[in-house]
Each structure stands twice: as structure tokens, then as C-alpha cells.
Simulated scan of single mutants.
Amino acid sequence: MESAIKTIVTTFLSSAKGKEGLDSKTFQKMVKSKLSGIMEDTDSSSAIKEMQQNLDTDSDGKVDFQEYLSLIGYIANSMSQSKSEQTPNSS
């Protein structure tokens, strides 16, 4: 778990390259390169742009670390629900 958290943090920091947030181009590049294996529509620029706009709660045009964590939480929750739906109940 520790390495997963480190990966989440370092992925954001390396993508941001010292800036406080990911601009549109940087966010698209990060999603396409780092999340294409677990997310749908990562080949669609318009879908990624819509995702960025939904994450950008302060409407500054960038995805900051807290907003990025919302994306990670959404992905983790979706994966958890998917796994639990595949596992038969042991009643």
C-alpha cells in the first residue's frame, strides 16, 4: 500500500513538473499515459477535457493535487465496486 501511495504522489508531481497543477495539455498526457489501462475513453481528447472540467472545482483551468485525488478516489471506488460485483456473495 505504501508503494501505491508513493506512486500516486510521484505521478502527480512528475506530471506537474514543479507547478501547482496540471494544465489541460499536461492532464491529457498524464491520463493517456498513466491511466489508459484502467479507464475507458482515454483515447478521446474531448472525454478527457470533460473529465478535467469536472475535476476542476475551483475553475482555474488546472487540476491541482486535491482535485487529482478526487479522480484517484473515483477510480479506486469504481474498481472496488467492479471487483465486489464479480465476487459471489457467501450467504
Rank of each mutant, 00 (worst) to 15 (best):
D23C: 09
K6S: 14
T11P: 04
T87Q: 13
I38M: 14
K25Q: 15
N54F: 00
I5F: 12
K25W: 05
L35H: 02
L13S: 13
N77T: 14
T7Q: 14
D41I: 02
S78N: 14
L35S: 01
E85H: 09
S44C: 11
T11R: 06
I38S: 05
D56G: 03
P88K: 13
G37D: 12
K17F: 05
D23H: 06
T42M: 11
A4K: 11
S78T: 14
F27R: 02
T42E: 09
Q81V: 00
I75W: 01
T11A: 13
L35R: 01
I75L: 08
S91G: 13
S14A: 11
S44Y: 12
S46G: 00
T7Y: 11
G37A: 10
M30C: 15
Q52N: 03
G37K: 12
I5S: 07
S24T: 13
L35P: 03
K32M: 12
D43Q: 15
M1A: 11
V63M: 11
S80R: 12
K83A: 15
S91Q: 12
Q66P: 01
T26G: 05
S36Q: 13
G61Y: 08
S91C: 07
Q53N: 11
A47N: 08
S80I: 05
T10A: 10
K29M: 07
K19S: 13
S82V: 00
D58Y: 10
T11F: 02
T7I: 06
D23Q: 04
E67F: 11
I8Y: 06
S59N: 14
E2A: 14
S84L: 11
D41G: 07
I48S: 04
A4G: 01
V9Y: 11
D58R: 10
K34M: 12
